[in-house]
Design a protein around this nucleic acid. Structure first.
Length: 445
RNA sequence: CGGAGCGUAGCGCAGCCUGGUAGCGCACCUGCUUCGGGAGCAGGGGGUCGGAGGUUCGAAUCCUCUCGCUCCGACCA
């Protein structure tokens, strides 16, 4: 993409309403525009990041054998009356009435609807196990939205639901989700720690929240530093291997890690003092097992091998997709702007032309641009008439992890500059070598 | 939902107290110069002062109502 033809409305000054760094940078980098309290338009740069996060979630869900669906945002109230949650949910649920005076709602979550789909089409244990998921907009009418997309009213969320014949099978689904989530977050450049949690309004027995450590997090968290040393890395996972998954889950849930809601001081003090850590955390996902809480009242049953009719065991599993955009920025930025992890960056590499209109410089930039495109990468080429300083400031703000700087001075020696946004370190090399280097960085992702 | 604020040009703000017909910086447009870390000079365009009602000869300014947004708290993915 050429910046001269792109829509990137960056702001030099900080918008008054933005308090935390991710909100400020998302507004300044032209990623979002607020339309109402807690409701945002996604501008091109923000949308690219959002789509990248979605893509990673889809890929990892697919790897775990989960099946995508898409349910409507608008749901009939009657479905929620069946589960008893229409009255239980409270004012966070946005209730709407259509022209025929029928009660509807903008879904804050989808247990009822997915259960309705399941009961309509699944009759036999032979069709289990099954996990369906979607990435869809949700609405929760928060009393006080704030922190930009970190706590909006409308938000994009991946919500998945497993259907299993037994508690044991459902726990395998639980483990499958935990492991796939660990992979998912790591691919986004995040360390998200599973912490034992409260089940809240979804209800249930077993539940873990995934928290990203960041000073602006909404929750106070306590953990054994041993857990932050764990890396998922590129280990192979067989999602059908129950014992294997159980071992991984055990590895990640054994060290103490809890939010203030479930914090147990005496357990915490059993860890060596130097490993007792507390911090703030941003919740970016949660997994639940809740058994037959919905399947029983809503009649989601299957026939067992011996002919009995039993309600299925269920769980639900969420990832805050839009919230992750903010969480990643909270976890990865400096005083100049965002620093995107390679896995989610909106463009793979920036190209800064220091002397637009200079024949040799323009040609070198074009060659680098087409070289990167030929490697399957998406560069952002700043071909505007701005001065060098302004171009650097914009690139730093929008946070592309790599930048190739091209100017007459370097080109005289046949060299351009490759700069890491994260470290700020630069190396000079030939334009061809720079293209190769950048391609190499992304080859493993 | 309790408490506190704020709505004036795309963004950040001043003007309001003490009424007299709107201003600054950035951004934008034109020209010249400049050109490796948010350039300089000159010229220019853009505002129903959130909305409605009222007081007044006259309202951004005073009064009433209303809508929106923000912050602190309680609540929450």
């Amino acid at each position: 993409m050429r910046l001269s033809r792109y829509f990137l409305p960056v702001l030099k000054e900080n918008p008054a309403e933005a308090q935390i760094v991710s909100h400020r940078y998302m507004l300044r980098a032209g990623m979002i525009k607020q339309q109402q309290a807690g409701i945002y338009s996604w501008l091109p740069l923000g949308l690219k990041v959002l789509r990248n996060i979605e893509r990673i979630v889809h890929e990892e869900q697919g790897r775990a054998g989960h099946i995508p669906v898409l349910m409507p945002t608008m749901q009939p109230a009657d479905l929620w009356r069946e589960s008893g949650r229409y009255d239980a949910y409270g004012p966070e649920m946005l209730r709407i009435r259509d022209r025929h005076e029928r009660d509807m709602l903008f879904g804050p979550t989808n247990e009822e609807m997915i259960t309705d789909i399941f009961r309509a089409h699944v009759e036999s244990y032979k069709q289990l196990p099954m996990t369906l998921y979607q990435i869809q907009w949700k609405f929760r009418d928060e009393v006080r939205p704030r922190f930009g997309v970190m706590r909006g009213r409308e938000f994009l969320m991946k919500d998945g639901y497993n259907f299993d014949l037994s508690y044991e099978d459902a726990m395998h689904a639980y483990n499958r989700h935990m492991v796939s989530y660990l992979r998912t977050y790591e691919r986004m450049g995040l360390q998200a720690i599973p912490m034992r949690a409260d089940s809240g309004p979804i209800g249930g027995d077993d539940t873990h929240e995934f928290l990203v450590l960041a000073s602006t997090g909404e929750s106070e968290v306590f953990y054994d530093s041993a857990i932050t040393d764990l890396k998922f890395g590129d280990r192979a996972v067989d999602f059908d291997d129950r014992a294997g998954l159980e071992a991984i889950v055990k590895e990640w849930t054994t060290p103490y890690a809890r939010t203030d809601e479930t914090h147990d001081v005496s357990l915490f003090h059993e860890i060596p003092a130097e490993r007792q850590k507390s911090s703030r955390g941003i919740e970016v996902g949660q997994i639940f097992y809740f058994g037959t809480k919905y399947s029983e009242p809503m009649g989601a049953t299957v026939t067992t091998p011996d002919g009995a009719r039993v309600p299925v065991h269920m769980g639900s599993h969420g990832i805050g997709v839009s919230r992750l955009v903010g969480a990643i920025i909270e976890a990865s930025h400096d005083d100049k702007g965002i620093i995107w992890p390679e896995g989610v960056t909106p463009f793979h590499c920036g190209i800064v032309n220091l002397k637009q209109g200079d024949g040799a410089t323009d040609a070198a930039c074009e060659a680098i641009y087409s070289g990167l495109v030929a490697k399957g990468l998406e560069p952002l080429y700043d071909d505007t008439e701005d001065r060098a300083g302004a171009k650097f400031a914009t690139m730093d703000l929008i946070g592309l992890p790599w930048r190739i700087t091209v100017g007459p001075r370097g080109l005289a020696n046949g060299e351009v500059e490759l700069t890491s946004r994260r470290t700020g370190e630069s190396e000079t090399m030939s334009p061809e070598a720079a293209v190769e280097r950048v391609a190499g960085i992304y080859a493993g992702l």
